[in-house]
Amino acid sequence: MRRPRPTEESRARAARITQSLADLLPDEPVPARSAGRRTTGPSGAAGSDCPGCGEPLHRAAVRHGVELDACGACGGIWLDAGELESLTSGLDPAPGRGAADEAELRGRVPRPASRESDVRYRECPRCRDVMNRRNFGTISGVIVDECRRHGLFLDAGELEEVEAFLRAGGRAVGEASRARAAARQQMPPPPEPLPSTREVRHERASSTALDVLWNLFFG
């Protein structure tokens, strides 16, 4: 599959995103990388090809031990397994402050713009297996590319959408939605309706008529 090449506009947008991440998440210095052959290290994907556009991933910032491997061309971000949960663990609202249901959640956080025109299955930058696409939080509308062994990839802007979803109470609403779906799957099928009185009378009348004809011809 031919990968799209970055444009000047996309490079400028990605540079702004990378700089914003560096300004917001400067808790620890970014370790310097030596020049040389691009490889995938044991603790991250920096130096690997971006699943979104094929350009190299670089460490953009570190926060609470979470390394953000960003693409300078398309603005995508790679997070190792478990790092998104660590990065967003403190974003849930206090009890009673979050949305009560999906309708209220949509009022607080509009559904992300559809990216279905760009749907394609991408490769994990570490193992090169095709990643799964999943709806973050079941109902967020943010479709992330995930390798269950190594981590996940977020397109430009999706990290901000995930954070807004969680701040509005989306995690609890999504869990409630999954619980309802599981309960529906476990419910037994409804019983077949009992025949109506008219159907029973019709069946009896038909049976009586057959008995009369049988007796006339064979009795």
Rank of each mutant, 00 (worst) to 15 (best):
P195A: 15
P51S: 01
L213K: 10
L25F: 10
D80K: 05
S117E: 09
E85F: 01
L68Q: 06
A14S: 15
W78A: 00
G75P: 13
S48F: 05
P195W: 13
E104N: 04
P189H: 09
S10V: 11
V109R: 06
E55C: 06
S10H: 04
E160V: 14
R115P: 00
P26G: 15
P4M: 02
R204T: 07
L91P: 02
P42R: 13
H58F: 13
L152H: 00
D211E: 11
S20G: 14
M131R: 04
P189T: 05
L79K: 00
H202R: 13
V109T: 15
W78H: 00
W214G: 05
S114K: 08
E28M: 15
R108S: 04
P42N: 12
S86W: 11
E104S: 09
A99Y: 09
P42V: 03
L84C: 00
A32I: 06
A209C: 08
P51F: 02
P188R: 08
G141R: 06
S20H: 15
V144R: 04
P189Y: 10
E8H: 13
S114N: 02
S20P: 05
R115T: 11
V62M: 13
P188W: 06
E203N: 10
E192A: 15
E67T: 15
V62R: 10
A100E: 13
E55Y: 00
A205H: 12
D49S: 08
I77D: 00
H64C: 10
D145Y: 04
S206T: 12
V144P: 01
D23M: 12
S34E: 14
G170D: 12
G72A: 12
S20Y: 03
A113D: 09
G169F: 04
T18N: 11
E203Q: 08
F153Q: 02
G44A: 01
V109I: 13
V142Q: 00
G72R: 11
P112H: 00
A99T: 10
S207P: 01
C147G: 12
G82S: 10
L24D: 11
P51V: 04
R16L: 15
R171M: 07
Q19G: 13
A94V: 06
L166G: 03
G137M: 08
G151S: 01
R97A: 15
G151W: 01
R120H: 12
G151T: 07
L152V: 02
G75D: 07
Q186C: 06
R11K: 14
R120E: 06
D155Q: 07
G90W: 05
P29V: 14
R37P: 01
D27M: 15
N135H: 10
L57K: 03
A61L: 08
E9T: 14
R204S: 06
V162K: 02
D145F: 10
G52V: 06
P125V: 01
P112E: 03
R167M: 07
G219R: 01
H64I: 13
R2L: 11
D69L: 00
R128C: 02
G76W: 14
C124N: 05
G169P: 07
R37E: 11
R204H: 08
W78N: 00
L159V: 01
A209H: 14
Q186A: 15
T88F: 00
